[in-house]
Design a protein around this nucleic acid. Structure first.
Length: 252
DNA sequence: GCTCATGTTCCCCT
DNA sequence: CAGGGGAACATGAG
């Protein structure tokens, strides 16, 4: 699941742990601790959780805990007495509850770092929630390749994933295979507006809503149809990812 | 058995 | 150097 709105939902969950002392970290699967050691944070208190793109991070003592959720990660806050899930990999045990990092497929992981966060996350563009129209123009200028690839690139804009990018292109009525360099100003503006709306409307839900009137609500149905015009949706690999779009109302 | 999956990274091309 | 394609990573669902 985890794209920007999902991770924002995890951030809200993680806030329960802010200000609490980490009594102990249970490494149920130590391979998911991708960097650092738990001794740097045991006995320390979590600071505020912050999200940038698909990353969630919080200071603890003089270290920082960073989490990435891959495709199947999530975060839960539970009472310590409740049963853990079979895919809980790393658990931060606090007083009054524990933060459980769960991840079935084991892409992503948890890092504990005393160095700059960029050492862990790699270069990230501005969070998608903070990109203005001029900012988007700037980011896309001089770039080659498709709209799909550009919006998916975390170094350009952080937080958009496969579902969100398809949703944005669909709302903007732009064919995701369109070369960025060939977009008119008007179409960049439509993309920006769609991005801002998809981000804003997805955050309260904690996911890209698979709702009526959303591409995400239709894309996985058999004989999937465009919620706007009813044409059969197209499905193909674009920029390496399964991409769904409407061949009738999304134009190159 | 086979295919596909909301992510990232690395290698090889062009 | 910038991008694209494909594979790899690990696990489950249909």
């Amino acid at each position: 699941m985890p794209e920007l709105p999902d991770v924002e939902g995890f951030r809200r969950v993680a806030e329960r742990a802010s200000g609490r002392r980490i009594k102990r970290v249970d490494l149920l699967d130590r391979t998911l601790l991708r960097g650092g050691g738990v001794s740097a944070v045991e006995g320390e208190r979590f600071g505020d959780f912050e999200r940038h793109g698909k990353w969630l991070m919080a200071p603890a003592g003089d270290a920082e805990v960073l989490m990435h959720f891959g495709m199947t990660g999530r975060l839960d806050w539970e009472r310590r007495s409740t049963q853990r899930h079979v895919h809980d990999r790393i658990v931060f045990v606090c007083r009054g509850g524990e933060l459980r990092y769960r991840n079935m497929r084991k892409f992503g992981g948890v890092w504990i770092s005393r160095r700059g966060r960029e050492r862990v996350t790699g270069p990230l563009g501005p969070d998608a929630s903070e990109v203005g129209l001029d900012g988007l123009r700037e980011l896309l200028s001089g770039r080659r390749g498709s709209v799909k690839a550009a919006l998916m690139d975390q170094r350009l804009i952080a937080g958009l994933g496969n579902l969100m990018v398809d949703e944005i292109a669909w709302r903007a009525r732009v064919d995701p295979r369109t070369a960025v360099g060939r977009l008119s100003r008007r179409r960049v503006e439509r993309l920006w507006r769609a991005m801002a709306e998809v981000v804003r409307q997805s955050i309260p839900t904690g996911r890209v809503p698979p709702a009526e009137g959303w591409l995400t609500g239709a894309r996985d149905e058999r004989d999937a149809r465009c919620p706007r015009c009813g044409a059969r949706l197209r499905r193909a690999t674009v920029a390496g990812r399964t991409t769904v779009w409407c061949g009738r109302c999304q134009r190159r």
